[in-house]
Amino acid sequence: MLTVDFDRLGLQAGERVLDMGAGGGRHAFEMYRRGADVIAFDQDADELAKVSEWFFAMRDEVPAGANAEIKEGDALSLPFGDGEFDRIVAAEILEHIPADIQAIEELVRVLRPGGTLAVSVPRWFPEIVNWKLSDDYHNNEGGHIRIYTREELVDKVTKRGLVYDGDDYAHGLHSPYWWLKCAVGVEKNDHPAVKAYHKLLEWEIVKAPRVLQAAGKVLDPLIGKSMVLYFHKPV
């Protein structure tokens, strides 16, 4: 389930790309499939170990010359050189980081002039509903510590030297699912309504039926759970 539009990001085979806060690797895998030289970066060693296993399993299915590796570290001090990456993805990570401006400055530093950055965060309206319905949704170790407006995040990134290219929204079918979970209790995965909706989302992800694709196109601009912002670094 991808949040970032890689065509809009401008990703090309052979480019060096960073998935900052890679988590389970969903975006790193897609960039690898497209022939990029990928670094999956995260502070969770267990998650990275799984990502590494998938990279190994994919090695015979990717374009010739594509490379992928993992790197563990701190988003506030990226272990990479200035201007090292052509493209960077930072998906659903900044809302977890107290020193978000420092993290943004590091992303800008390692992006080459002319390179592009995609940043996704939870969208303000769906996220504020979750916070109102449940303290448990965000009051946990490593949880969400802020809710961004588009204007706030654009301001923070452009003040660090990037140019704003536009935005998009994704996962409109997922917002009601999280509202439901927050209403009944975020840990109650066995609740009948939660289980039924989860099966619907599994159907969307695995089978991609046309009816749910059409529903997503309608709901994404209205209540898409994720907001995606695109930037480039001036030459």
Results as ranks from 00 to 15, higher is better:
Asp190Gly: 03
Gln43Ser: 14
Glu105Asp: 15
Trp203Val: 11
Asp165Gly: 03
Asp136His: 09
Tyr177Ser: 04
Ala193Trp: 03
Asp155Ile: 04
Ile97Ala: 09
Glu202Thr: 11
Val206Gln: 08
His138Glu: 03
Val121Tyr: 05
Val51Trp: 03
Lys181Gly: 02
His198Leu: 10
Gly142Val: 10
Asn139Ser: 12
Ala208Phe: 03
Ala36Arg: 00
Val4Thr: 08
His171Trp: 00
His138Ser: 09
Gly14Pro: 09
Ala215Ser: 14
Lys71Val: 15
Val121Gln: 01
Glu84Leu: 12
Val38Trp: 00
Gly115Phe: 10
Phe6Ser: 01
Pro176Val: 05
Leu133Ala: 10
Asp136Arg: 10
Tyr32Gln: 04
Tyr230Leu: 08
Asp190Trp: 02
Ala170Gly: 01
Val17Gln: 07
Gln102Val: 14
Phe231Val: 09
Gly10Trp: 02
Leu94Val: 10
Arg33Pro: 04
Met58Ala: 14
Ala64Glu: 14
His138Thr: 10
Gln213Leu: 15
His174Asp: 06
Gly216Thr: 12
His174Ala: 04
His96Tyr: 09
Tyr230Gly: 05
Glu187His: 05
Leu94Glu: 02
Glu53Met: 11
Leu117Ala: 08
Lys50Cys: 07
Phe6Leu: 13
Ala196Trp: 02
Ala75Met: 10
Ala22Val: 13
Met31Lys: 03
Ala40Val: 07
Ala13Pro: 08
Lys181Cys: 06
Glu95Leu: 12
Val38Gln: 02
Val211Ala: 13
Lys132Leu: 14
Leu48Thr: 08
Arg59His: 14
Leu180His: 01
Leu219Ile: 01
Leu173Glu: 00
Glu61Val: 13
Asp42Leu: 09
Phe56Met: 10
Val89Pro: 01
Leu222Gly: 08
Lys188Ile: 03
Glu61Gly: 14
Asp86Asn: 12
Gly224Trp: 00
Tyr32Phe: 15
Pro192Ala: 03
Gly83Asp: 08
Gly35Gln: 02
Ser175Ala: 15
Leu111Val: 12
Pro113Met: 13
Phe231Asp: 02
His232Lys: 06
Ile145Asp: 03
Asp136Thr: 12
Ala183His: 05
Arg123Gln: 09
Gln12Met: 12
Phe55Lys: 06
Pro113Leu: 13
Gly185Pro: 00
Ala13Ser: 13
Gln12Pro: 00
Gly73Cys: 11
Glu141Trp: 07
Met58Asn: 09
His174Val: 03
Glu61Arg: 15
Phe85Gln: 04
